[in-house]
Structure formats: structure tokens, C-alpha cells
């Protein structure tokens, strides 16, 4: 698996993220990219308190994240970057590269039209956006690392 993981998860840090990703892959850096949390230290500190003591945690607004590209500091270690929605993911498209593992883990709004698995529900609009993104990169609907992912991939891509 690639070292930089972009995970779309509207619950940010929860059991699957901590047990499944952070502890399983021994991820040493966790970054949340979200404008609201970047301005709200109380809410950010709640998430920070859940992580193991040796895990670095930071929160960036979308603009800050695009300009500072903080994950480049930790090239050799796993870095998990948590994004709250497909829209937020596409807003940081300037940072996309082949070295990123695109993971859609949890979008819990079950009123949406497309059900990918038991934790990802997408609107048709978001589904279309991911389809466009899959023209360039493989997208993994992947709850936890030991389960087989559903891969959204364009096989005609060169």
C-alpha cells in the first residue's frame, strides 16, 4: 500500500480508523483536512485525544493543506489524511499524485441513491465525481485494511 492515504470519512476518527488503519498499519501521522475543525480547537482536541500517544495529529483547512502540503515531511512513514466529503476531496485535487492511496471509507448518509457497501452511500452527483476521478486514479472503497476493497478503476487508462 502507498504511504500516503487519502481517506474520505465523514466520521473522521472512529473505531475502524483507529483499530483498522492507525494501529494496524502503525500510522504515525494523522491529518484532518476540514475548514470547520481547523477553526474549532475544542472539537479538534476531542479527535486528538483518541489517538495513541506516539501518533502526530494535526488539522488543516483546505487552503492551508493545499499550500503547505504537510504530508511531504513524512515520506517514509504512513500518513493518513482524513477528509469529510467527496467535495472536500476534490477541493484538494492540486495535491493529487500517483503516490496517493485514494480510499473512500465511510459516508454514512443512507438517504443517498448509491450504496457501495454497508458504510458508503453516495449521491448520484458524488458517484459521478468519483467516476471522473477514476479516469486518473484508482479509488478504493475500503473500510479496513484486512478486508478486500471494491476498486473503482478505469481499465482503459494507460
Amino acid at each position: 500500500m502507498k504511504n500516503i492515504i487519502y481517506r474520505v470519512d465523514d466520521r473522521f476518527i472512529h473505531g475502524q480508523v483507529l483499530e483498522g488503519w492507525v494501529n494496524y498499519l502503525k500510522i504515525s501521522n494523522v491529518i484532518i483536512v476540514n475548514d470547520l475543525l481547523a477553526e474549532d480547537s475544542v472539537r479538534a482536541s476531542i479527535y486528538a485525544s483518541t489517538l495513541p500517544a506516539n501518533t502526530k495529529f494535526s488539522v488543516y483547512s483546505i487552503n492551508d493543506f493545499c499550500s503547505k502540503k504537510p504530508y511531504t515531511k513524512y515520506k517514509k512513514k504512513y500518513t493518513l489524511i482524513l477528509i469529510g466529503s467527496i467535495n472536500d476531496l476534490l477541493q484538494i485535487k492540486d495535491t493529487f499524485s500517483e503516490n496517493i492511496y485514494f480510499n473512500v471509507g465511510c459516508i454514512s448518509d443512507s438517504s443517498q441513491e448509491v450504496c457501495i457497501n454497508d458504510s458508503v452511500f453516495l449521491s448520484l452527483n458524488d458517484f459521478q465525481k468519483l467516476q471522473n476521478l477514476s479516469e486518473l486514479y484508482d479509488i478504493y472503497f475500503h473500510k479496513v485494511p484486512w478486508e478486500k476493497p471494491v476498486i473503482f478503476s478505469n481499465h482503459n487508462r494507460e
Partner: peptide, 15 residues
């Protein structure tokens, strides 16, 4: 927020 955070803490400890 607390549902997510306590899920993370609780799953790691209890399970």
C-alpha cells in the same frame, strides 16, 4: 463527534 471519538477509544480498549 463524541460517537466517533468514543467509538475509537472504546473499540480499542474493550474489543
Amino acid at each position: 463527534i463524541y460517537a466517533s471519538a468514543l467509538a475509537a477509544l472504546g473499540d480499542t480498549f474493550f474489543w
